[in-house]
Design a protein around this nucleic acid. Structure first.
Lengths: 209, 209
DNA sequence: TATCCATTGACCACTTTGGTCTGTTATGAT
DNA sequence: ATCATAACAGACCAAAGTGGTCAATGGATA
């Protein structure tokens, strides 16, 4: 399976991918329109079906591409030697925001895919899902557990709930940040990290020793 | 304007409302299908257009009905004499969960409506939005500010961020609770309140004097 | 019996659907 | 220069879906 869709010219490829991701993240498979995709990608109907033999194949390849991309992006950027779970979460949030800025609908798309999980008829993609979808979710959970120093917490009996508070706080923070963003806005990550750090300090000073 | 849609038989009314809310919360106006609505409501096409003269009127009346319903439900159940913001938020969350259980898609629907805010051509509904949509958002903000005792906070300089942490934590909690719920499940509110109280205790003991 | 209105679903004109096909242009090897 | 092959366009197709209509039915009330 070709995760990169590399036989297509790079610029056009990005336009197709982005248009398709947007369409499939906006609407469920049946309501997603290939007409919209070609319109937004700025290509002809014929070309789309020259590259992909059907709407289904386009969708399947897209899932493969996106899961692969996210997996690589996240796993390569997480600092596994960081033992403080708050720093881990912060790092994940920033990575997610960066990806979300470049591919605005990638996360919506993959969340939809993983939650529906409706079996694809194409074996190749089920394999792919088994291979990467599972790994993808494993790595997400590893971030919160692997090599974490739980002795930092003031109250050992509340560790799980504390972690939830950490996670929920930072997730909502980034959601709201991305939500109030117009198309052309540029994210100032330094500024964001400063703001996140303020929350981190509050959380650390109250929940850690 | 008839907020109750009361000329329709109550049982059938609920089915139509729920089916329409679901369809409009799932898809944007153009992609929402009246065929789906009548199918899910278990009525004939003719009957829908007997009650509502067009798809647009159905949508407009629905917006009025839902905003009115939410406004009344929330404003009547909030305890305005409660000075602890955490208790306020907790109460709001529980109310939201109860509404979300009876009308599963009402909140998705209204969030979509309020965020798009695309001007309706029907004056009546713009008035309605001006009247209730604004009030609705005012009341939501009042919950977090009106008659709140801020002296409870340990660190006065962090009050706003602390409140954000409270809000985000409890919102995410309820979102996840409702998300992992199958259609037939019954919500045990006593149990939920116990669980929320555990979070409240943690937050109070760390952020309050 | 006559009136009335809720209710049905076949039906309409129109749009949109995924996909095809023929033709044209660009590329690049010989 | 030639020829093959790929890239690309867009008119076109049958099929499905769209919002909306309307004559017909059935049940209730007077």
């Amino acid at each position: 399976m070709d995760y990169t869709l590399s036989n297509i010219d790079s610029d056009k490829k990005d336009r197709i991918i982005n248009a398709a991701i947007e369409e499939f993240s906006l609407y469920p498979y049946d309501k997603a329109s290939t007409n919209n995709i070609v319109k937004n990608a700025g290509i002809s109907k014929g070309l789309l079906f020259h590259y992909f033999e059907s709407k289904q194949e386009l969708y399947d390849k897209l899932v493969g591409f996106v899961i692969n991309k996210l997996y690589n992006e996240i796993s390569s950027q997480i600092k596994w030697d960081e033992k403080d779970i708050l720093e881990r979460i912060k790092h994940l949030i920033v990575v997610k925001m960066k990806i979300g800025k470049k591919y605005p609908h990638m996360f919506d798309f993959i969340i939809k895919v993983l939650s529906y999980k409706k079996s694809s008829s194409v074996d190749d993609v089920m394999d792919l899902y088994g291979k990467y979808g599972v790994d993808f979710q494993v790595i997400l959970s590893d971030i919160y557990t692997k090599n974490i120093d739980y002795s930092l917490f003031r109250k050992p009996e509340d560790v799980q709930k504390n972690i939830n508070i950490f996670q929920w706080t930072l997730e909502k923070y980034s959601e709201e940040k991305l939500l109030n963003l117009s198309e052309t806005d540029v994210l100032d990550y330094d500024e964001i990290i400063v703001e996140i750090d303020e929350y981190l300090n509050i959380l650390k000073s109250t929940f850690y020793n």
